[in-house]
């Protein structure tokens, strides 16, 4: 299994905004790990989906030269859960960015496959660190292990130029 929690980037305004979607399917094991009778997408993985969407936005802004790591979940709130057959739509916006890192704000919507209705699901604000710019001066090598092959495939699939 690949650690990818978005299926496609559907919109990108470089340095400003990235919109991505994830289709939730019954076949995903983690949907069945909860206590309720209805399978739902765990909130932690929804946050990861936003982190990947916003992280790609931040990474793209520096030409994927920086190793962008999720450093802090500033705020996460949910008003609905995602069930199989829905599409999660992540809308990430870059609020601030400097040499050391970036702050993003994001809203999440649910698109229902049955009637195409769109409902707000929640919001997640994040803080990212540029790993190589750490204050301690630690070095992590030349290879950008954050944006590896899986992300390259996703970007290519979404029609986004990587480098």
């Amino acid at each position: 299994m690949r650690w990818l929690w978005i299926d496609r980037i559907v919109e990108l305004t470089p340095g400003e905004r990235l919109v991505a979607i994830k289709n939730v399917t019954m076949a995903e094991e983690h949907l069945h790990d909860g206590e309720g009778a209805i399978p739902v997408m765990p909130a932690s993985l929804v946050i990861e989906g936003m982190a990947q969407s916003a992280g790609l936005l931040v990474g793209h802004a520096s030409g994927f030269k920086e190793k962008v790591l999720l450093a802090k979940i500033q705020r996460a709130s949910f008003e609905r859960e995602a069930i199989p057959g829905t599409t999660i739509r992540y809308d990430a916006r870059l609020v601030r960015m400097d040499a050391q890192g970036a702050a993003t704000e994001g809203t999440i919507e649910l698109i229902d496959a049955q009637d195409g209705s769109v409902s707000p699901m929640g919001s997640v604000d994040l803080l990212f660190s540029h790993l190589d710019q750490n204050v301690a001066g630690a070095e992590f090598g030349d290879v950008n292990f954050v944006f590896g092959e899986a992300f390259e495939t996703l970007l290519r699939l979404s029609g986004i130029e990587i480098r």
Binding site: A71, K72, Q74, V95, R96, D98, Q100, G101, A103, L127, S129, N134, V135, A136
Partner: peptide, 14 residues
Amino acid sequence: ESIDFLDIKFQLEQ
């Protein structure tokens, strides 16, 4: 922690 300093900086700017 160290990352909080970046957070504080961003928030003060805002």
